[in-house]
Amino acid sequence: MPTNRRGIRYYGAHWSVLGIAVLAAVLATPFALDALAPKDLEWGRLSDISQTYGAVSVLASAAALVGVALSLAYQARQTRIQNEETHASAHRELVLLSLSDPVYQVCWEPPNTPVTEERWRQLLVANLIVSMWSSDYKLSIMDDRTTLAVLGDYFRGEIGRAYWHNSGPSWHQYFDHSRDARQRRFVSLADEAYNAAAAAGPPILARDYFAPPATPPGR
């Protein structure tokens, strides 16, 4: 996943330190002026300047708070990305475990459509692929146009189309009432791409994906 987590941590810490430093400087300035000012300084004349300083200090304080807010936003995004990666990793390990031994495949929910054991293994891998694109869309790595293009191309194939025919209803069951608007939107885009692919004609069969090996000369 193309996410620069180190950069997020750096900029988050940078904004936090900068915001705290600016705020501390603003708060300390009046005391520093009082300590350093000459004894005969006309404080009455300085009051007009202090009013201007007060306005500037408010702006500086606001800028510091904005910096802290930006830092918190960066950190929240980092946490969300890490949670997504942890979830995806756990899902991938479970699928790989299921593929390693057929006895584990019945530990998942039964297929929505009758399929062979071989097709079920193919659908498990297809689930990993579509879930990867779902995660990319949730993190705004892919926009609507890119998602439609990727899914539209995927559903041209037999396995991809069989996957959504079997598992699309489950995606709707899980996410139609979810508070995650981008997850709901991804399911809608997948439906749109699937329907467009189906309207365009039959899928490309798995056996037709690759050309047969070339026959060596003289045979």
Rank of each mutant, 00 (worst) to 15 (best):
T29L: 12
A13S: 09
G218P: 07
T215C: 09
A69D: 06
P30F: 02
Y163W: 12
L72T: 15
S140E: 14
V68C: 06
S98M: 10
A200V: 05
V22A: 13
Y10S: 03
A76T: 08
H91K: 07
A69V: 13
D153A: 13
F155L: 10
D136G: 05
W15Q: 11
V66N: 06
Y10K: 10
E84Y: 06
T3W: 08
I8N: 10
I49A: 14
S140N: 15
G54E: 09
Q122R: 06
A62F: 14
L72F: 13
Q82G: 02
R92S: 09
L97D: 13
I8T: 11
A32F: 12
L72R: 14
G218V: 04
R145S: 12
F175Q: 13
T215L: 15
S98T: 06
Y209W: 04
K138G: 03
L46N: 11
A55C: 04
I8M: 15
A21S: 10
W164G: 01
G44C: 03
L59I: 05
W133P: 00
G67P: 08
Y104P: 01
L148I: 06
V125H: 02
G7V: 01
L70W: 06
G7N: 06
A149R: 07
D153H: 09
A211P: 05
G19E: 08
L18N: 13
H87E: 15
Y194F: 14
R5C: 02
A190S: 02
T29P: 00
E118W: 05
Q173D: 14
V106D: 11
M1C: 07
A13D: 01
P114Y: 02
E93Q: 11
R119Y: 06
S98F: 08
R156Y: 03
A200H: 10
V26H: 00
R6D: 09
L27P: 13
D153V: 01
D101P: 01
L148R: 15
V130D: 09
E85D: 12
A13Q: 05
S140T: 15
A24I: 14
V26C: 04
S98R: 10
S140M: 12
I8D: 11
F186Y: 08
I159D: 12
R207C: 09
L148V: 07
Y10E: 02
G44Y: 11
A13Y: 07
L151D: 14
R6P: 00
A24S: 12
A90S: 10
L70V: 13
W133N: 07
A181D: 08
L33T: 12
G12R: 12
I81D: 15
C107H: 07
D191P: 02
I8Y: 08
A55M: 11
G44Q: 14
V68I: 15
W15K: 03
P213I: 03
H165D: 10
P114D: 01
A196P: 06
V187L: 09
S98P: 01
S61Q: 10
I81N: 04
D40I: 03
L205W: 04
D101K: 00
A149W: 05
A76M: 07
Y74R: 15
H87D: 14
A60G: 07
D208H: 12
A90H: 06
N127D: 15
S134M: 09
V58P: 05
L189E: 02
T86W: 01
